[in-house]
Structure formats: C-alpha cells, structure tokens
Design a protein around this nucleic acid. Sequence first.
DNA 1: GCCTTGGCCG
DNA 2: CGGCCAAGGC
Lengths: 271, 271
Amino acid sequence: MALHPFKISTWNINSVRLRAPNVQQFLKAEAPDVLCLQEIKCQTGEFPAKAFNEVGYTHHQVLGQGGGHHGVAIVSRHPIETLEPQPLCREGHARVQAARIEGFEIHNIYLPAGGDVPDPDENDKFAHKLDFLASMARDYSALASDASPRILVGDLNVAPHENDVWSHKQLLKIVSHTPAETEALEKAREAGGFFDIARELHDDGQKLYTWWSYRAKDWAASNRGRRLDHIWANDAAMGLADLDSYSIHLAWRGGWKPSDHAPVSSSFQRP
Amino acid sequence: MALHPFKISTWNINSVRLRAPNVQQFLKAEAPDVLCLQEIKCQTGEFPAKAFNEVGYTHHQVLGQGGGHHGVAIVSRHPIETLEPQPLCREGHARVQAARIEGFEIHNIYLPAGGDVPDPDENDKFAHKLDFLASMARDYSALASDASPRILVGDLNVAPHENDVWSHKQLLKIVSHTPAETEALEKAREAGGFFDIARELHDDGQKLYTWWSYRAKDWAASNRGRRLDHIWANDAAMGLADLDSYSIHLAWRGGWKPSDHAPVSSSFQRP
DNA sequence: GCCTTGGCCG
DNA sequence: CGGCCAAGGC
C-alpha cells in the first residue's frame, strides 16, 4: 500500500444538522479524504458547513432538498471538481451527485427506499425504485467505456446477497431484498463494470450489515441487520483498491443519537 | 421564624417530562415542603413519578390531560389529603386542584392564557379567561368564611400591578395586563380574602417578574418580563407568613432547557 | 424508533 | 422560541 492512500467513506446520516457532532467526531477519528453523505434532510443553504470546516473538510458539494427529504453531500479535504450526475431519478429528488477528487470519479447515490409493498403496480415508490435501478444499468454502462478510476458509493437500499441480510428466507418478500431488486442491482453493477468492494474482500458466506432498524429494542443484541450501503469500484479503481482497508464502522451505529446506518470506508492507492 | 417553616413553591414547568431533571435539581437546591406545578403537559399516567420519588417527594397529586395541554400537579414530602377543587373551568381542562398538606389548604391553579385578542366577543379564549376569573371570585368568596390557613398558588396568567410588567403603558392592550383582567383578578383575590404575598413584601414601585418570553433574543438583557405566577394567602395563612422568605428563583429561567417561567417560593410557620 | 414538516398554543 | 401533536417516510 502507498504511504498516502485515498480513503473514501459513505454514511447515510439521517439528518446532517442533528448529527453534525457525530460527523465531526467520525471525521476526526477516521480521517477519510472524502465523505459521501445521504439523507442530509436539509436544504442546500442549511447545510452545517462550519462543522465540516472546523475539522478540515473545507470542500463541500451539497445537493439539498426541502420538505425534510433525501439530500446528498460530498465533503472533502481536497478540491472538488463537480461533474454532471447521471439523470437517474425520474422524480427530480436530490439523490445523485458526481465529482472528481484527487483523480477519482466519485458517484454518490441515495437510492429510493421503495415503500412497503414490493409490487410496482400497487406501489409507485417500488416502481420508482425499479426504474431508478434500470436507469443505473443504462447510464453507467454508457460510462463504462471511459476507464478513469471510478468509485460509486451510497445508500443503495438493496441488500443483494443472501448474507447481506440477517435472514435471507424471511426477507425475500421484504423490500430491499426481493429478487426484483437484488437482480436489478447486480445487473446495474455489472453493466457499469463495477466491483462490490465488500464482497471482493469477504466471501459470500460472511454476514455483512451496514443498517439496523431503529425499531429493534437492542439492535446490537438482535443484530437483524442489512447491507444497504455500498462501495463499488470500476476496473481502474479496483486495481488501486486496498481491499483489507474495507471497514464497516459499527461503533457509529451506537453512541449519542446515532443514525440507523453505520458509515463504511475503503482506501485506494492514488492514480 | 419557627425552626421548621413550611415552604411552598409554584412553577409553570412547560412539560414536566422534558424538564424532570430541572425539577429534580430545583427540589434538591430549594427543598420546599410542597411544589405546585402547572402545564405539566402529560396525561396523569405519564407523570414522571420516579424523578420526584428519587429526591424525597413521594406524595403526588396529579391532574393530567391529553393532547399536550395544561395539566397541574402537587408534589410533597408530606402526605397529601385530596380536597374537592373549585369548579372554575367551564371547559373541563385540567387546571385546578386542591389539597390539604401539613394543616394548610393548598389550591393550585393554571388560569387560561386567554389568546391574543382582548375582546370576549371576538375571542372565545379571552371570554373563558374572564369567566374563569369571575368564577374564582364567586367560589373563593364562598370559601372565605372557613378560616383555615389557605394558600392559593399558580400561573394566573395575569400581571395585576403596573410594575408587574416591564411596560405598563405598552401592555395595557396586551392579554395578561388589560384592565378587564387585572381588575377581575384583584376582585377574585379580595373576594377570597387573599393577600398577594409578593406585594405584601415589596412595595408597588418595585418591578417583579416571574415570566419572560422564549421569543426574546436575550431574556435577561432585555428583561421584558411579567409577574404571572402568584402566591396568595388568606388571613390565617398570612398570620403565619414569613414575608422575607418570598423569592423568585431567577436562576431557573436560565440553564439547561429552561421553562419560560421561574419558580416562586414562600415560607410559613406551621399552624 | 427516530427523523422530518406544519399547525396550534403560549 | 419552544413545547405539544399529527402525518409521512424509512
């Protein structure tokens, strides 16, 4: 591994204003080069920029939304070159952004959760999710021929493998783990020429979770998690990946007013 | 003054569940025999009894209400004998309770705030407030012949004197200080044979406030207060009063998540 | 469960 | 400004 790897983290923060202290502490502790946030739940102008500046993350690319919904942001210790994001969201939600940082193309995605009923005819939100996944396959396959190092991260709201959920059997009809979703996600990943960093490191028999419901009495004891948060790398980035650096930062699911998602990180050699 | 005076405090707590820590600290610091609370904003069954038990206030008389409105409670280090309250509130709100503790009749009242427009024909809430005040005069005059020591406390939502508000002139048409209210309150007090402890101690030229709006940028600096919280004593209780003990506990208007009201206390010799 | 918003109230 | 509630979302 090079002396100065490029470390990227992704975290569904479930309100960045409420959890600015958590994020500050996380950045101090893990010191990634770049942090991609989802569900910031604020307007662009309400982003707590100061909290990030204070700890050295002075470059911000914020895509906020009103109504307390969605919203994504990239914060970085290095300058950010804004890229045109893929037009994945037919609803115009603040869910997708792209940037170039330190020679890496970074794509940050908050994929629609999809509601409760896994039927696109009955549930518009599920239809939107499948539509978003189909767009991903289309848009990223168009990009795949451009072989610059590309990392896609975010809360994709799909747990693709059997061991990405606490019970494959019990979740097969639960949105996030239905075959329609897991197959569409795998198809999108492959169409974009991406590798799933977590599963490149860990074999498929290994349980991996990044999200635990708030509703559990004791999330850690019952450990009914799902792996909804992902780091994908294309060929060029995969060649630079330090697989062993992949980490799900469990500690941040606990502590003071935690998000229901843990942050996830991985490091790469610089291109 | 006797060695073991009877100390009573009153505090509009604006949610007793949220501010259970504040109340605990107050009780530890001021150690009254009895604390009367208003705006507990919880149902009777949701009252945080444990917080009071922990600091020695094991006797509770709680009159809660749903919908997050009103609610009054008496907590005491001594046994409480429940008395029938006066039927002052035509709306059936949880606003009035009465008890006997250590030989004192205690009446705890949360008087209707009265809305914004000081006109009973336009504003039902103001009409209700005037109606409540008229009921007080009627009901307590009926009680006045019973000369047992009687103390009436609570958030009466009226600042009767010129120096019970930061600007008499500017508040004459503001609900809480209109002549209709201040005259009705004085009439109720006199009809019940009560003395206003604060004004028995302090002359009318002295500004006295117990409430400061949350809306002020700096409540202490601007000091635009009103005296809405009162301790009244009938003849028998007045004869036992230690006037010098009267205190508005300003410190509790500040600190961690304060109520917009400060607690008020006074001590009496035991009957 | 834990966020958001927006309304009612003071 | 800051309690409460009721929805809507995940």
